[in-house]
Design a binder for these strands. Structure first.
Lengths: 199, 199, 199, 199
DNA sequence: GATGAATGAGCTTTCATTCAT
DNA sequence: TATGAATGAAAGCTCATTCAT
């Protein structure tokens, strides 16, 4: 019985991963359900016995992985401990790591953000996510400012510009995760917080 | 005869603007040719007498406006004069101005970059564009580094991180161009080049 | 221009007639839009440029012809003149004539009445139709009763039993309209109103 | 062993009753096997271990109950005893009783009669049924005519018009069996046989 | 040149039926 | 025997493209 559920879970997971891959490569409309089925190694109809519709599959393909990366973006204080400057450095390390390995998810997120009208529910969810992150990092930045390590501009500006930056690098560089260029960007990310010369 | 051509030009331009608007809002596949015709105030078939196919219309909707913004990204030395630091400041001013007013075009570019396989020709074109920019700004950065105003990292890294950043802010903030937030980002863009505290 | 509209009208009419024929023979679900297109001599997509959906086509295939036969069932006083007994005789003549020539429409009506839940809007429309008829004939029956020609039961009972009867004969006898059996039923219809021996 | 069979019989009966209910409400094509299984409280695949196909289930759902009502329509002499007029009166009583309580079956029969091409085997079976009834009642009518109680028209006409009538009332009035209107129709049914004023 | 009706390939989705457990 | 996940044929519907007017 347990074995049965495992098998089902595996199949569901295969479909979902195929969906993430193809949706991220080709976008929602240009991805055919038949293609996802083929990629997942299941029959056509099987996709619909795990997900009620193509729309639902798309939503799930975004929201489920989003949950996994949430800890790295919200409630930062509980996840990252230490001095503000170290928290930010560790966070950047983790984010770059995340963004270089979960590129597909990030492509999907970008698609949604680029078409707010097409997926309003998803868009709202992602928007919440962004706002939660900005709120969470605000206090850390403020503390860092008091210690004199960070620029004295509005914490929100710094938070948002950081977010824009990591979004942008994922967009601009589609190389695979082993590309060392990803890691060079860490120092640039840090420089949005304060003047850091050493790399 | 001239009047005739003007009229034709106008119609073509209407169609193209409608295409830019709708493609950028809804993506390629979700935009219907019928919708573009309606938005442009022309009949359905007329679209096809100006553009041979939906694909061609999409390409044109991206490549023609791209030509207009090219001067701001390639052959920077001929467009921007002065000390490196001033060149970069002016460039950032112009870019932010551009990115806040031509958001639709930038959404389109982003769509193409997000789906390299779907529009390979367009993707190559945009990739060239990026590379030209990075090449062009490299020398300016090198000069600025000699003068001690910029960070001493690889000029390409700086160039690419700047590009990622402005791409990212457009993606993250969908507010209209009058939103003052756009302008706050200028100082953050500058900080990718060197340590600048004053805003 | 007029010729154009005529042609369009003709095509629409071809589709509608094909729909009436096939829907009445095979029911809603078993009738394929492709079959209607073939029967009408138009391409598949054309059906959808005249009717938005299969459902709408079905509704139209019933409601438009229903309008044509309405005069024979509502506002009977304005349509049939004379003594009650003659009015009823003429009405029966007309109804039998109608029911023998418009059998297809009647099959459709029956399908709807047999599935009240499936086509609630249509069902309501047909129900109205029936009630209008019963109301309209009530006064005629009352007058005939005063003259001693009709049974003295509730006029509604007589009206409804007449309606049931003509519905039933159409259901029971699927022979073509030239079959003389249809006309034999006239006398039986009349006998629901009063005792009439002569045929 | 017997208990086992009882259990099986019960399950089969549950499925069949669910089928009758849903087929009669929604028609053949719009009724899903999954829905029947749910209504019957059995699992999806179980339906197919009792009936080989949806078609077979439909046929059984009609033909088995048809056997139960057959005694009321064929070999009338063995079932109804007495004077023709009393036989007819009793028959009408029984038929109205039957038609008011077995409405679902009658809806099914009507569906088949309305689509002769879709279920040719069933249609033939029901056609036989009708012809048997008409044959059987013919002699009773002839006798009644000799006694001067019935109209002197063709016995077949009278038989068929009676059948049409009871078919029609079931079609026209979908109220539940407790509705007294059903019983008012008895006198109208009788009037198709001869002039009967008293109700 | 402009129009929009006609076309049909291609898509998503449904659901009867099969079959391994 | 009972189950329900897997299958894929078949259907409705969309929409880019064509072409007669």
């Amino acid at each position: 019985m347990q074995k049965m559920n495992d098998k089902k879970e595996l199949k569901r997971s295969n479909i979902l991963n195929a969906a993430i891959k193809l949706f991220s490569q080709n976008g929602f409309a240009e991805t055919k359900v038949a293609g996802i089925a083929k990629e997942a190694g299941v029959s056509f109809g099987t996709v619909f016995s795990y997900f009620n519709s193509k729309d639902e599959l798309y939503e799930t393909a975004i929201l489920e992985p989003l949950e996994e990366i949430k800890p790295y973006f919200v409630d930062l204080e509980t996840h990252f401990k230490g001095e503000p400057i170290d928290v930010v450095k560790t966070m950047i390390d983790d984010h770059v790591q995340l963004f270089s390995t979960r590129k597909e998810l990030l492509f999907l997120i970008q698609q949604v953000l680029a078409s707010p009208n097409r997926f309003p529910k998803l868009f709202a969810e992602l928007d919440d996510f962004v706002n939660s992150f900005v709120d969470s990092i605000d206090t850390i930045i403020e503390e860092g400012q008091k210690q004199g390590h960070f620029y004295n501009d509005s914490p929100s500006l710094i938070a948002e510009s950081y977010l824009s930056f990591i979004n942008g690098i994922r967009l601009t560089f589609i190389d695979d995760e082993t590309n060392p260029v990803w890691h060079s960007f860490k120092i640039q990310a840090l420089r949005l917080f304060g003047p850091f010369s050493e790399s």
